[in-house]
């Protein structure tokens, strides 16, 4: 888990340095395409995660990670 924390925290320090955002707003048309949404239909994804959790002991960090597209 220490490695996991490092992986999550390290990019934050990168973001605070002088590095500029490398994908400009006008370059985000592919990211804004509906097919690139991590989870297009939350109600359907929730159900499938429910099935997985009923059949598998692992839990947590399920799907749904999204956002950050900067497309608005």
């Amino acid at each position: 888990m220490k490695l996991a924390l490092l992986l999550i925290v390290a990019p934050l320090f990168v973001a605070c340095s002088s590095i500029e955002p490398w994908v400009k707003p006008y370059e985000r048309q592919h990211l804004a395409d509906p097919i690139m949404v991590m989870d297009r239909d939350p109600v359907a994804t929730q159900y499938l995660n429910h099935v997985y959790e009923a059949r598998e002991a692992a839990r947590g960090a399920e799907g749904g990670s999204g956002g950050g597209c900067g497309c608005n």
């Binding site: 888990m1 996991a4 999550i8 985000r28 990211l31 690139m36 991590m38 990670s65 950050g68 900067g70």
Partner: peptide, 14 residues
């Protein structure tokens, strides 16, 4: 969640 390139997005979840 991080935009990696204009064609790629990635996310870590703990």
């Amino acid at each position: 969640t991080q935009v990696i390139t204009k064609d790629m997005i990635a996310g870590l979840n703990m």
